[in-house]
């Protein structure tokens, strides 16, 4: 069953002669348990595609359905609910809150949903699962890049989203750390979630179930 289904997605930045169409009637389906890598040159629109699917931005045209919700019919509040319950994000630069410890970073999204105490237990379980037990009380600037990205993965998963979106998750990591992160993402997909990652990394493409290329605003297999 498709967790993500996009048809004719179009997005243009700028206006008039400065307008640049980064997505031009792009189609994409991702089902639960599937890991799909989106490859393409810098500026080809990979991040834009993830932002649209994650409800961070709205397309100019096309239809988009994520976890059963038609995004073109959602209000702002609906988008917030979608991000809160159905989508997890991982960024290239981790974006951990520097004032919070690793564990606090992971637990922060659980405050957005009912049952914060069970969320806290989930956060601790994920931290254990990702091998971060010993460093969970440390502030981000004292952690390695790989550790920071694993905390970011835990944070993205803590509210048990249907789809995990990873934007260049290994772009800022050394090879070893990148392998560890990709292994964890693969495990997430194997657990039944849809995983979509935008990447330049060939290793990431290799580990994915499917690779789609974004070129000239269109997606092709």
């Amino acid at each position: 069953m498709n967790v993500v289904s996009a048809r004719g997605l179009t997005k243009t930045y700028g206006r008039g002669r400065a307008a640049r169409k980064v997505l031009d009637a792009a189609d994409l389906d991702v089902s639960g348990g599937e890991m799909v890598a989106v490859a393409g040159r810098s500026g080809s629109g990979k991040s834009t595609l993830l932002h649209l699917i994650g409800g961070l931005d709205r397309p100019d045209a096309g239809t988009l359905e994520v976890a059963g919700s038609r995004l073109d019919r959602l209000t702002e509040r609906g988008f917030t609910d979608l991000r809160r319950h159905q989508v997890g994000f991982i960024f290239q630069f981790f974006h951990l809150v520097p004032e919070l410890t690793g564990e606090e970073n992971v637990a922060m999204p659980t405050r957005l949903v009912n049952g914060h105490s069970s969320g806290l237990a989930r956060a601790r379980a994920l931290i254990r699962e990702l091998g971060l037990d010993e460093v969970s009380g440390r502030l981000p600037h004292t952690l390695s890049g790989g550790e920071q990205q694993r905390f970011a993965i835990a944070r993205a998963l803590v509210n048990e989203p249907a789809v995990l979106l990873a934007d260049e998750p290994t772009g800022n990591l050394d090879a070893d750390a990148a392998r560890t992160v990709l292994r964890h993402l693969r495990a997430v997909a194997s657990g039944g979630r849809a995983v979509l990652l935008a990447t330049h990394d060939e290793a990431a493409a290799e580990i994915a179930d499917r690779v789609v290329h974004l070129d000239g605003g269109r997606l092709r297999a």
């Binding site: 994650g54 961070l56 509040r77 917030t80 609910d81 991000r83 809160r84 319950h85 989508v87 997890g88 994000f89 960024f91 974006h95 809150v97 520097p98 922060m108 999204p109 405050r111 957005l112 949903v113 944070r155 993205a156 509210n159």
Partner: peptide
């Protein structure tokens, strides 16, 4: 802004 954006990306609304 990036910190607040990450919170919003994780589902934080205007109230949060």
């Amino acid at each position: 802004r990036p910190t607040l954006a990450v919170l919003r990306a994780g589902g934080a609304g205007r109230r949060e």
